[in-house]
Amino acid sequence: MIKLQDICRFFKVGDETVHALDKVTLDISRGDYISIMGASGSGKSTLLNMLGLLDMPNSGSYQFEGKELTTLSEEKRATFRRENVGFIFQSFHLIPRLTAAGNLELPLMLMGMAPKERHTKVKDALANIGLADRANHLPKQLSGGQQQRVAIARAMILKPPLLLADEPTGNLDTHSGNDVVKILEELNASGITLIVVTHDLELGERATRKIKMLDGKIIEDVTSEKPI
């Protein structure tokens, strides 16, 4: 599904050049459950942004189902993100002035879907995450776990094949964290490729394929037969 070849990404900080990604080569198959772990500054978030096309490599090639993505225009990259990638963030990134339903509606609105169609989809999605009765609540009226569930529903509302989660449980207590992980794993079980960046060893160990990074390089890539 995804083929990264010699991806380099460096930043200039003063006189120094920091290699966030240093010749990263990686193959990802459809339906994979991957955790990316490593210390702060190891390049794991940069790798995730790269996979989601939020960031562009300085060199190297990124192929998605055989199509080269590094040469796409800004507009095409936006379309790619909308159609193929769902993002989950540590801080949820719900728009505070929009209700749960309004936040869910956002991707549909951006693509220009008719309001009627949008409302049915949003209603279904809210029912799926068990928040049908919270549709008109603002984010600040929801618990952290509920907010992250809304964010996951928003990421999945257009049914992208790739789900990228950056510390999805980082701001949650254990209980709601487990709920969120359960939802993510159910999505993976239904065939969606799930990539989780985390500090949390316990969460990292749950993935079938565990990648460790250090100084912009992949130093370990282990695939276990079955999820624990």
């Binding site: 989601g52 939020l54 800004e74 507009e75 936006a78 379309t79 993100r81 909308r82 159609e83 990638v85 993002f87 801080s91 990134h93 728009i95 956002l106 991707p107 951006l110 693509m111 928003r154």
Partner: peptide, 16 residues
């Protein structure tokens, strides 16, 4: 800013 970042992550191009 973070809202703008989110819009872009959700697939909004610069023009939008």
């Amino acid at each position: 800013k973070s809202e703008i970042g989110l819009l872009k992550a959700l697939g909004a191009p610069t023009r939008q």
